[in-house]
């Protein structure tokens, strides 16, 4: 007995009959089958569940379905344009920024929003990455190659390279 919610997910309006108290993370993974979004902690600490809500990076474990009703959500599945990867995704692959990969969707989503917004350029680009991505914990890489990848992606975006 639940009023349907409408969420625009990766550009497509989706109607889900979910309790408004249900976590957006669970709606995406279980109701919509978008399992690219991962749960690492359930307490908003690790960032693995990061999605964009109306363009802003959020932890989808800290958003309930009601809050997403009528809004736009972008998940990792929506970053690429068909087979054409987002610059962040391409650079993460090219520069070894993904290892076990469980934090990678959250990092890719957050970084895509950040570099598309024009950040992580200029002389302090690396410091910007370290501040803006601090909500995404990676236990594999020591962060170095992810910083490399995001700075490179920001440069790609600045050059207009998709």
């Amino acid at each position: 007995m639940t009023a349907p919610l409408t969420i625009t997910v990766n550009g497509q309006p989706r109607t889900v009959a979910a309790s408004p108290w249900r976590r957006l993370l669970d709606v995406l993974r279980e109701d919509l089958g978008l399992t690219g979004t991962k749960e690492g902690c359930g307490e908003g600490e690790c960032g693995a569940c990061t999605v964009l809500l109306d363009g802003a990076p959020v932890c989808s474990c800290l958003v309930v379905a009601g809050q997403a009703d009528g809004r736009a959500v972008t998940t990792v599945e929506g970053l690429a344009d068909g087979p054409l990867l987002h610059a962040v995704q391409r650079e993460l692959v090219a520069r070894g920024g993904a290892q076990c990969g469980i934090c990678t969707p959250g990092i890719a989503v957050c970084a895509a929003a950040v570099v598309d917004g024009g950040a992580c350029r200029g002389g302090d680009a690396r410091a910007q990455v370290r501040e803006l991505l601090a909500g995404n914990i990676c236990r594999c890489t020591g962060y170095q190659l992810i910083v490399d990848a995001i700075v490179a992606a920001a440069a790609d975006v600045e050059r207009g390279q998709p």
Binding site: R29, L34, T35, G36, T37, K38, E39, T75, V76, E77, L79, A80, L85, V88, Q89, L92, V93, A94, G96, A98, Q99, G101, I102, T104, P105, A108
Partner: peptide
């Protein structure tokens, strides 16, 4: 050679399926 890891694209696109997926 520093070839890209073979599972890289699956991991950056969310296509890689972990147990809970």
């Amino acid at each position: 050679r520093s070839l890209p890891r073979v599972d890289g694209v699956a991991k950056v696109t969310g296509a890689a399926r972990y147990l809970d997926d």
